[in-house]
Amino acid sequence: MGNMKIKAKEKNGVVSAKVLATHDMLTYDQAKAKGTDANFITHITAKVGDKVVYDVSTSQFWSKNPQFKFKFKGAKKGDKLEVTWTDLSGKTVTESKKIK
C-alpha cells in the first residue's frame, strides 16, 4: 500500500474500479519553473490474471495524484485486480486488490 489506492466492486458481472495513484505529475512547464525535470505517469495498465482490462497511455495533463475510474466485464468477486503505472523516469509501481 501507500502508492496506490484501489477499490473494485463487482455487480451483475460488471466490475467498477476506482484508483488513486500518488504522483506529482510534474508538467514540463511546472518543472521548468521549479528547475527540475518533468515527470509524470505515461502509462497505466490493469489486469485480472493475464487479461488486460484497462490500458491507457497518458500525458502530463492528468491531475496531480491522478484519480481514475473504469468498468470491465469478465471478472468475479475474489479475483485480483492488478494495476501498474510507469512514469517518464521509468519507475514502475504495481498494486493489487481483491475484487469485492
Binding site: 505529475m25 508538467t27 488486460v52 502530463q60 491522478p66 475510474k69 473504469f70 470491465f72
Partner: peptide
C-alpha cells in the same frame, strides 16, 4: 486501448 469486450466508461481528472 480498449480490451476486447471492453466497456467505454472512463473517468479521470485532468489539468
Amino acid at each position: 486501448q480498449v480490451p476486447e469486450d471492453g466497456i467505454v466508461d472512463y473517468s479521470l481528472k485532468i489539468k
